[in-house]
Amino acid sequence: MELLLTLGKAFFVGGLFCAVGQVLIDKTKLTPARILVGYVVAGVLLSALGLYQPIVDFAGAGATVPLTGFGHLLATGVQKAVTEKGFLGVLTGGLTASAAGITAAMIFGLLVALIFNPGDKS
């Protein structure tokens, strides 16, 4: 029962983040790349203001899986690194925290390029 509630919260909040993105696609001329950049920067900003952690606590993956969650990861990473290492942490914190995701995307991208061939749209 508790698992169902956790999953439901993730579904609802994650879905909301995406529905907002759909409004941006349909009602503005923003390109996908701009929307993604906007989400990540918004995630950093909201986390810096302390507004994103409560959403993560409530919705779990519903808040960490959308790209605002990527921004949240960068922000919490830099927070931790600055506390531990001071000024050096300013430069190391963000990418250290997000290294798993970025490296995974690069390596899987390389593997897919090695294995698959590009195809036509149906």
Partner: peptide, 10 residues
């Protein structure tokens, strides 16, 4: 946006 905004879109 359902496939754009999550990390899968990235």
């Amino acid at each position: 946006a359902g496939t754009l905004v999550p990390i899968t879109g990235f």
